[in-house]
Design a protein around this nucleic acid. Structure first.
Length: 865
RNA sequence: GGGCGCGUAGCUCAGCUGGUUAGAGCACCAGCCUUACAAGCUGGGGGUCUCAGGUUCGACUCCUGAUGCGCCCACCA
């Protein structure tokens, strides 16, 4: 029913506010990281909707090529079949089924969380519309000469049998071994020693390199060495890449299996010798006994064979970083293959500029450097994948003329020779090649018939996502937006926390330390999950979350619910409330309203600076510490005393409750709406049919009162707190009223005017007002405050501990006074510190001196021992 | 090797542009089922703000160095 309120109207005249949901992968259900990410987006969307913007939160899912294909293959495995047995068409069909199932689960999870996205605009990276965008982009970039096919060394994943991009490789530091092998000179005049961490790659060696300036090896340059265990020989070449001080200063060069060696090979025209078959097993380049072995088996055997041949010179432990596939977690093999690449260099200039000029802002700002560093060192992007699930590359190769036909619509013939013998490239595109178009492909681009959505909702205001995909997704979206639409896709990038378990470990399936958002929603409610997530998740940091933490949120929701119940259960609560009238307000009400206004100002500030954790804290303190702890107590007092008409205070309480529900709504949409619907409408607030579209409080419309007007009340509150402490120390049950004596100095008039409040909020029976110079009531418990003393008689007073307490206070006051005196006696401080700081210290000194004096007199009255 | 960030109460963290008695939640202790709330109320204990210098009248806050930890990027076979 509320969903209609979430729909974005592209023809609206309101100012747009747009957020694009980072599309969750359709691989699996959502985890708590998604819970946080989507809560944050929803907070901003709901806030801005309440501020009167035409908001559009565009939801959707990502086909996640590699990840989904892995999941589907895994499920096939359980049925005992491989995707090859199933065939491509059938396999892709299975992937669609998987997508439908998990896409639905994801949407229902997001809705349970309260996500107020425009569900009618749901997008999917492989929908017909987005496929059109992908093709269009590919074809355009191809015709601009930016997409090319080439045989290059790429990161090869032997588990998935596909190339992956540099950004999908994760390097892990490990301890391995460094072996030194002797390669005998062909003319029998000696040997060269080379070091390697990967012995098995020696069969792909096509040279040995030394540094051109290395005196030790001048004579060897151009000579031949024998490649052990084979019949081949290698030339000794000179290249400045070689470090003279590492190992022997000789390097074996394996151009087909190492990125650096590949470059050297190019410089020296070395042959590329691939030693692996498609499965990652050693091929015929290796000696017969090693053929068909895996990399690991071959390594052990190679070392053994070299040792047997008397050519193993050394084995040492060695720290090295190895590349792993981020998805499949297997060791990456650099492998020569035909792939499609996108030239990135010509595309990045503008993306760099807008970050430097502040047209694109990162929160936290430190990410700007990381972003720029990546762009400034950009490499070509390998965009083809040897997978089945994804966007098929829109390129057809002609069997007759061997030329490529690159087209947006499926061609029937070769554009070069018109032959019909054309076949589409078997590969698919990297998933990110569709994700990077998300800011405009989801809005209908490149369809021309109706681009009102694109015009209205591009660009978006803020992208809220995890910093882990800053290169994979964020930077690339900026590039695509600038290249395709001509303007950046968003203004702000807000990096949310990474959710970890209580020990600071990332959630992972293998550890089983994840928290299922739905289970927690069942236990504590969606609002509690939302509140807990954001209050514990600082901007861009790492948030440690345990199951127990959600109790905090649960308690808060419960507290709010009870506060509302108090109000709603009042028999005197009128259905028609009077408007606020400054002249009829009691001082505590004036204070409550002022506190509310301050809260509104703080929340506005925190939202604008993306400090949602601070916003949550601010609201928590207002609701719990101000509205409940004081507001409700004040209301009870008035209702009990009948000192004022009940409608008046109930109207104020309703007004503030209505306002705080508005503040709370973006964060806690369920409970706030639930209460708000039951609340009588207040004439000073608008009353639409749902809180979803109610106005967000603005400070300029709110009433507040000056510090002078509230000064006495602040003093009274301090006295009340002191009396409560006294009561607690007297161990008297709260229902027993207390008799106190009060000594007041300068603030006497104000306090005595508030006597009724004092009496009620501190649960007093009788008050005796004492003059400052009157004898101290003995024996009695005492609390000495700034500008006042309160006493109460108690049945039995533990004199030593009472003295102890006073002495402790005395010591504390003395220390503080010493510090202040230190400052005030410092001539430099007095001459250089700003006047108001100086005055502050003097005032403080006077108050503390008075307080110390009182404490001392009380100590004397108790009799020093 | 380069970049970024973090070391504050037993635990998880706030503390923004230097001046507060350094705060919150959880945990702990004491007393309370006070008619909104025991998922609660009223109090309480607990911190040489990682260390060492410096700037300043004044540093948790700014600068330098040390040290421990985390993340990212690059990489010597």
């Amino acid at each position: 029913m509320q969903q209609r309120l979430f729909a974005a109207d592209s023809r609206s005249t309101r100012e747009p506010y747009v957020i694009l949901m980072p599309p969750p992968n359709v691989t699996d259900r959502l985890h708590m990281g998604h819970g946080l990410n989507n809560t944050l987006q929803d907070i901003y969307i709901r806030w801005q909707r309440m501020c009167g913007k035409e908001v559009c939160w565009l939801p959707g899912t990502d086909h996640a090529g590699i990840a989904t294909q892995m999941m589907v293959e895994k499920s096939l495995q359980q049925e005992g079949i491989t995707r090859q047995e199933l065939g491509r068409d059938e396999f892709v069909k299975r992937c669609w089924q998987w997508k439908d199932k998990h896409g639905d689960i994801i949407v229902s999870q997001l809705q349970r969380l309260g996500a107020s996205a425009d569900w009618e605009r749901q997008a999917f990276t492989m929908s017909p519309q987005l496929s059109q965008a992908v093709r269009s982009t590919f074809v355009d970039l191809y015709h601009k000469g930016l997409i090319y096919r080439g045989e290059r060394l790429v990161n090869w994943d032997f588990a998935l049998h596909t190339a992956i991009s540099d950004d999908e490789v994760v390097n892990i530091e490990e301890t391995g071994k460094l072996w030194s092998f002797a390669y005998p000179l062909d003319d029998g005049s000696g040997e060269l020693v080379v070091a390697t961490t990967r012995p098995e790659t020696m069969f792909g060696d096509t040279a040995v390199a030394v540094h051109p300036d290395d005196k030790r090896y001048q004579a060897y340059i151009g000579k031949q060495v024998k490649l052990p265990l084979t019949t081949r020989t290698l030339t000794v070449i000179a290249d400045p890449y070689v470090k003279q001080d590492f190992g022997s200063g000789c390097v074996k060069i394996t151009p087909a299996h190492d990125f650096n060696d590949f470059d050297i090979g190019k410089r020296h025209n070395l042959p590329l010798r691939n030693i692996f078959d498609a499965q990652g097993l050693l091929n015929e380049q290796a000696p017969v006994p090693l053929q068909g072995l895996t990399r690991d088996e071959a390594r052990t055997r190679t070392v053994q064979l070299m040792q047997d041949a008397g050519l193993l010179r050394d084995t040492v432990k060695h720290r090295l970083t190895r590349p792993y596939s981020d998805r499949s977690k297997v060791l990456i093999e650099p492998r020569l293959s035909q792939q499609w690449f996108l030239k990135m260099q010509p595309l990045v200039n503008e993306a760099v500029r807008i970050a430097q000029d502040g047209e694109l802002c990162f929160y936290p700002p430190s990410w700007k450097k990381t972003y720029l560093h990546w762009l400034e060192n950009i490499e070509d992007w390998c965009i083809s994948r040897q997978l089945w699930w994804g966007h098929r590359i829109p390129v057809w190769r002609c069997a007759d003329c061997q030329q490529y036909t690159v087209a947006k619509d499926d061609p029937t013939q070769c554009t070069h020779c018109h032959s019909q013998a054309i076949a589409q490239d078997e590969d698919v595109l990297d998933t990110w090649f569709s994700s990077w178009l998300w800011p405009f492909s989801t809005l209908g681009w490149p369809a021309v018939q109706d681009n009102s959505a694109l015009q209205k909702f591009y660009p978006s205001q803020v992208l809220i996502t995890g910093a882990d995909i800053i290169f994979l997704w964020v930077a690339r979206m900026v590039i695509a937006g600038l290249e395709t639409i001509g303007s950046p896709p968003f203004k702000d990038v807000y990096f949310n926390s990474i959710i970890c378990d209580h020990q600071g470990r990332k959630f992972s399936k293998t550890l089983g330390n994840g928290i299922d958002p739905l289970a927690v929603i069942e236990a504590h409610g969606a609002d509690a999950v939302r509140y807990t997530c954001i209050s514990l998740a600082p901007l861009g940091g790492r948030a440690r979350l345990g199951l127990k933490d959600f109790e905090h949120g649960g308690r808060f929701i419960n507290k709010l619910w009870n506060a509302a119940r108090f109000l709603l259960a009042q028999p005197a609560l009128p259905t028609k409330l009077p408007a606020l009238s400054a002249t009829e307000l009691s001082v505590p009400e004036m204070w409550l309203l002022s506190e509310f206004k301050q809260t509104v100002a703080k929340i506005d500030k925190h939202l604008r600076s993306y400090r949602v954790d601070s916003m949550a804290e601010t609201l928590y303190h207002f609701i719990w510490g101000t509205y409940c702890d004081w507001g409700v107590e004040i209301a009870k007092n008035i209702l009990r005393q009948q000192s004022l008409p009940p409608e008046q205070i109930l109207a104020t309480m309703t007004y503030v409750m209505d306002g705080l529900l508005r503040l709370a709504h973006p964060m806690m949409p369920f409970i706030s709406e639930e209460i708000w619907q039951r609340l009588p409408s207040h004439p000073d607030w608008d009353r639409p049919r749902s809180l979803v579209v109610a106005a967000f409080p603005e400070t300029k419309q709110l009433t507040s009162f000056s510090a002078e007007e509230l000064q006495d009340w602040h003093f009274t509150r301090r006295v009340i707190t002191a009396i409560r402490t006294l009561r607690s120390r007297s161990a008297l049950p709260p229902r027993n009223k207390l008799n106190v004596s009060i000594v007041v100095g300068a603030a006497a008039a104000g306090l005595r005017a508030d006597e009724e409040w004092l009496r009620d909020l501190a649960q007093l029976d009788g008050i005796a007002w004492l003059a400052a110079d009157a004898p101290k009531p003995v024996p009695a418990l005492v609390q000495v405050g700034a500008g006042f003393e309160v006493y109460t008689a108690a049945s039995h007073i533990d004199m030593p501990s009472e003295r102890e307490k006073l002495r402790k206070e005395q010591a504390q006051l003395e220390t503080r006074l010493q510090k202040i005196a230190g400052k005030l006696n410092n001539t430099a401080f007095c001459s250089k510190a700003p006047p108001h700081i100086l005055q502050e210290q003097r005032d403080k000194q006077r108050l503390l001196q008075e307080q110390l004096h009182s404490v001392r007199l009380n100590l004397q009255a108790l009799g020093e021992d």
